[in-house]
Nucleic acid binder design. Structure first.
Lengths: 348, 348
DNA sequence: CGATTCCATGGAAACGATTCCACGAGGATC
DNA sequence: GATCCTCGTGGAATCGTTTCCATGGAATCG
């Protein structure tokens, strides 16, 4: 509306707009006297530069895009928080977009980010085909993938090495006496879904446990599929005695239905979840998790992105994962009282 | 970089930039023939308009700012999601900012939003003094408050009527036989903190329960203060038999320390939390909550904001709250075995 | 058939900042 | 004391779009 522009500041300070601009952008070619007058005028008028005009002229918007599959997923909420804070301290604002686990919504946001000429983009990609991500690459817009990768797209990324954590979890369960571990997998259309599934099958083979394919349920990283997975696995002729869920939301779904089934987590069945969500430690029993630092992931993603923006070509980073044992998988298996199960089940 | 501009589109279509602009912005004063040629050229070049230039010229940025105290708080994550989706379907992108519960960080973001010339702002304010919110008002930038209000700022808002839910909760607990209800309050520097505290004291008085001021602990809406509150309340000579936490994070803190103290929620002590977080239903025992629709809150906030943008002056909206009873407060009080408490406590 | 209206179009100004170029004054150098 | 630099400054071009104004051809009317 009646916004105050640099012209007003210049007029009040009695200098030209060029000079005012120089002072305000810290250009040293200014005298102490004018510097002071311009600064005073800007403060007096509560001048806020028009970021759009700046961006248009200087082709730098000092803003980044961050696209996540779902903010309501605590893992991505934490990631968004971490990335946003890191970006802020580097002088960038973050435009947060929500793909809602839908490829077309992700594409729509990517186009918006292109239009807004963000200086760089961090994406936890939803689909497996790249979609409009290719438009970013064509335009040479600095882009970093986070958490997930996309086959065929050569972009720097920050991901987690699922292998180590999953191997630890399987070994841990094996040591407790479990031989049939149910695996609630992520979708095979995501890199993390594939990686973790592969890691699980390898770990199970190495530990000499049952490789029965029926013990694997393929979910979609949403809570409902965690419930469905438990439901399916528990109806097997020989159901698993331990469960491993490939992400936090599916673990939530699993917990929910286990309660309904009247199965006590930690005693009737062991449960381990991928993703270390703060809340998991508060459950009763506390949940064993495969932890990876989402804090680091966000920070490093921003770091890589800033490198790309500066014209460098950084190496991708793979973060470690590690098992944290809590009560949900602490009890050695006891085959003494399978009688409780039918009773409890009837509660449902 | 080598971005394609409307000039390129116009050249390829063999028209002037003015005409190209008219076609692309849906101006009817164009012939079917040129419309087609320009559209084809734009598609051919994968043209994405420069949003900054558009905003600069048209003084509309089709973007909104959303400022929340903390994205990691599931309540605000849900709010952000709801608002973002509603904004998106109205054709606006949302710039999400995180105040981190700090007034200065909120102010910094507000200045950024002013600079970026967003068309409107939705704020869940952090402090009690308004801070740079006043700058928004001076500039007549459409602004809507959500969840919390600020005394002395006359802005449309969407808030929750805490009164009804809290009254229901207190009556419910009274009916179970509780006479001493501990209240873990929000900070009195927030409107919700004050409102809920006032509602609690009124409800307790009406129900004829103990109004012992020692039963109220003033927290800060963070998990740690929930723990501290429980700790303090349980050390009273005559500790409460039921607890009411004024938000979800403090409830989380309370649950955490109750576990550590070896107190069984729902039997040793009743617990009710404000905010209906999905996860609370999954806890064991499931948590009784005072629910209010964060979905509606986000949607309505956008709705009000769009009205303000269109020059109207909408009425503030107050949403209802309502008690949902679950296992954490389902058991009538039993004064039979206070002996378990010392035993359990020594576990700590 | 000439005058008026209409409509699609081209050209140019404008949005608010940055940045390049030129200029003039003052100081340093010979 | 004349020349050359240096340095601070003003003016103008520029970024990519929208929008206003003028123009010219077609269509309509009397």
């Amino acid at each position: 509306m009646e916004a105050v522009t640099i012209k007003d500041v210049a007029a009040l300070a009695g200098v030209s707009v060029g000079t005012a601009s120089r002072v305000l952008s810290g250009n040293p070619a200014t005298s102490a006297d004018t510097r002071e007058r311009v600064a005073a005028a800007a403060a007096e008028l509560d001048y806020q530069p028009n970021a759009q005009a700046q961006a248009l002229r200087s082709t730098r918007s000092t803003s980044l895009g961050l696209l996540v599959p779902d903010v309501r997923n605590p893992f991505f909420a934490d990631l968004a928080h971490a990335a946003e804070q890191a970006a802020l301290s580097a002088g960038y604002v973050t435009l947060l977009g929500n793909a809602n686990e839908q490829g077309d919504q992700q594409d729509r946001y990517l186009d918006t980010l292109i239009s807004r000429r963000v200086d760089g983009v961090i994406v936890a990609p939803v689909g497996d085909d790249g979609g409009r991500l290719r438009a970013l690459i064509e335009r040479k817009i600095p882009t970093v993938l986070v958490d997930r990768t996309v086959p065929g797209l050569d972009l720097p990324s920050v991901t987690t090495d699922s292998e180590s954590g999953i191997r630890q979890a399987v070994q841990h369960l094996a040591e407790l006496g479990h031989t049939r571990i149910g695996y609630i997998s992520g979708p095979q259309a995501t890199s993390t879904g594939r990686d973790r599934y592969a890691a699980f099958t390898r770990a199970v083979a190495e530990a000499g446990l049952s490789q029965d394919p029926e013990l694997v349920y393929f979910g979609d990283y949403q809570a409902a599929s965690g419930s469905a997975g438990v439901h399916a696995l528990m109806q097997l002729a020989s159901p698993p005695t331990a469960l491993l869920a490939a992400d936090s939301l599916m673990a939530v779904g699993a917990i929910s239905i286990l309660h309904k089934l009247g199965m006590r987590i930690g005693t009737d069945i062991a449960l381990v979840a991928f993703d270390d969500i703060e809340w998991f430690a508060l459950l009763n029993p506390a949940l064993s998790v495969i932890a990876h630092s989402v804090e680091d992931m966000g920070r490093i993603a921003i770091d890589l992105l800033l490198q790309v923006i500066n014209g460098q070509t950084p190496q991708s980073v793979v973060l470690p994962s590690e098992l944290i044992v809590r009560a949900s998988s602490a009890t050695p298996i006891t085959r003494t009282e399978p009688t409780t199960q039918p009773r409890q089940r009837s509660q449902q």
